[in-house]
């Protein structure tokens, strides 16, 4: 499957179609699509991100990695404008997401696609209607055109045959592929993937990985991948950021990462239980705790 050239061919069809009917305008002045500077974000009692700096070049697939709960998903939500940071700047295509009104934000989101961790398909709509949803909401295309577009998008993810199934009938990998088709329905300039590899079998995992890469190249999109699956992602991304405790601790191309001297990266890549990320959650020493137990 990984060497199957057909996906590439189909993506080219999509590009062709894209030229006939440009739903979105890809305008870019600079080479950087997403620029994050000095970003701080905290919940009332917990700091999540502390002074993050990232830049994501146009046309690349960039992975943001880190342990569970390190604020990777929060970062995606900040880029999508779902939450606002206390300080710092998030610029997408040169525009500051933080200062946007709701309408401006919605205008921006039409050019973004997001794949949620478990797909987030609308359970009361069929696969076809799910993919058609953004088209119906944002365009006035005639029904026949919508049907063609939907089938084409489904074809790209290999699920044209499942168009009339309901989301409840799909496997985890399939529903994520449908969600991917839905996310690219409007040909976004920026794709965001929230843990796309979680809970998938090796085959589905390979399929999703390949789709992310190929769609990015074929559609000229920029992709941000939030994941902790290091081995799958190192094979397909252009650049990696490591986040730990709300800060960027390491970054580089996959090759640099593989040979990195950083203790954190070494621990992360090899999965050591102890290291810069300690095994024990911060606590008083065991002796102290136990003595307290006996005293009481």
């Amino acid at each position: 499957m990984a060497n199957d050239p057909s996906i590439k061919v189909e993506c080219n069809i999509l590009v062709f179609f894209h030229l006939i009917y440009p739903v979105t305008l890809l305008y870019m002045s600079s080479e950087t699509l997403v620029e994050i500077t000095n970003l701080d974000f905290s919940y009332p009692n917990r700091a999540i991100l502390k002074g993050i700096n990232l830049s994501i070049p146009k046309g690349q697939v960039v992975a943001i990695m880190g342990g569970s709960g390190c604020g990777k998903t929060t970062l995606l939500r900040l880029i999508g404008g779902m939450i606002r940071a206390q300080s710092g700047k998030v610029c997408v295509g040169g525009e500051d997401i933080q200062g946007m009104t709701r309408d401006q934000l919605y205008g921006m989101r039409r050019r973004m696609g997001m794949l949620f961790q478990f797909g987030a398909l609308f359970t009361d709509l069929s696969v076809f209607e799910n993919v058609a949803f953004p088209l119906r909401e944002h365009t006035d295309l005639p029904e026949s055109m919508i049907a063609d577009l939907v089938l084409l998008k489904l074809h790209v993810v290999g699920l044209r045959g499942a168009a009339y199934m309901m989301p409840s009938e799909l496997s985890g990998g399939m529903s994520r592929r449908v969600a991917l088709a839905r996310a690219i329905a409007l040909d976004p300039m920026l794709m965001m993937y929230d843990e796309p590899f979680t809970g998938l079998d090796p085959i589905s995992l390979g399929v999703i990985g390949k789709l992310i890469r190929d769609l990015n190249d074929a559609l000229g999109t920029t992709s941000i991948l939030v994941t902790h699956d290091i081995h799958e992602s190192l094979n397909m991304v252009d650049y990696v950021y490591f986040i730990s405790e709300g800060q960027v601790v390491a970054q580089g191309t996959p090759d640099e990462v593989r040979h990195s001297a950083s203790a954190f990266v070494e621990q992360f890549v090899n999965g050591y239980p102890d290291g810069p990320v300690p095994f024990h959650y911060p606590a008083p020493s065991l002796q102290e705790d136990l003595r307290m137990g006996t005293r009481k």
């Binding site: 999508g80 779902m82 934000l105 919605y106 205008g107 989101r109 039409r110 973004m112 997001m114 949620f116 961790q117 478990f118 987030a120 398909l121 609308f122 359970t123 949803f133 953004p134 909401e137 944002h138 969600a179 839905r182």
Partner: peptide, 10 residues
């Protein structure tokens, strides 16, 4: 996450 997904689709 269907509601958030919808919101993300503008």
């Amino acid at each position: 996450e269907q509601l958030v997904a919808m919101d993300m689709m503008a």
